[in-house]
Amino acid sequence: MAKEISGIIKLQIKGGAANPSPPVGPALGAKGVNIMDFCKQFNGRTQDKAGKVLPVVITVYGDKSFDFVIKTPPAAVQLLEMAKIKSGSPESNRKKVASVSWDQIKEIAEDKMEDLNAFKMNAAMSMVAGTARSMGITVKGPKPE
């Protein structure tokens, strides 16, 4: 029989940086989960993505056990990386200092379709391209059909 689910928790944590402080501590602690066990597992599994923001979906079961799925970084985070812009720096915005290709947009859109609530690849690509433009990142060339 499938285990009873007592809650689903969505967080974004930098790889290797889970610790029992907020938001991890209060969100998991309230459900009686051993926070330290989650932190050890999350950090163990994300050592090769240290410092990158990773969305994680944690399923907590009635017996206080849990499992979790780690997703790829948000599209905006991947765009900064592809455009080689340092996030958080003053130049990282709106000055059209960088560009990405449609191939790169497609690459992000492919693994983010579900998160973007997009049913068609074309729509997902348009959304990612829109995010890029809002960030001052130019998308090179005509959009492929």
Partner: peptide, 15 residues
């Protein structure tokens, strides 16, 4: 997403 991307360059560890 843009806010998360921007703040991730500072020492924020979760969102």
């Amino acid at each position: 997403e843009i806010v998360v991307a921007q703040l991730s360059g500072l020492p924020f560890d979760s969102f």
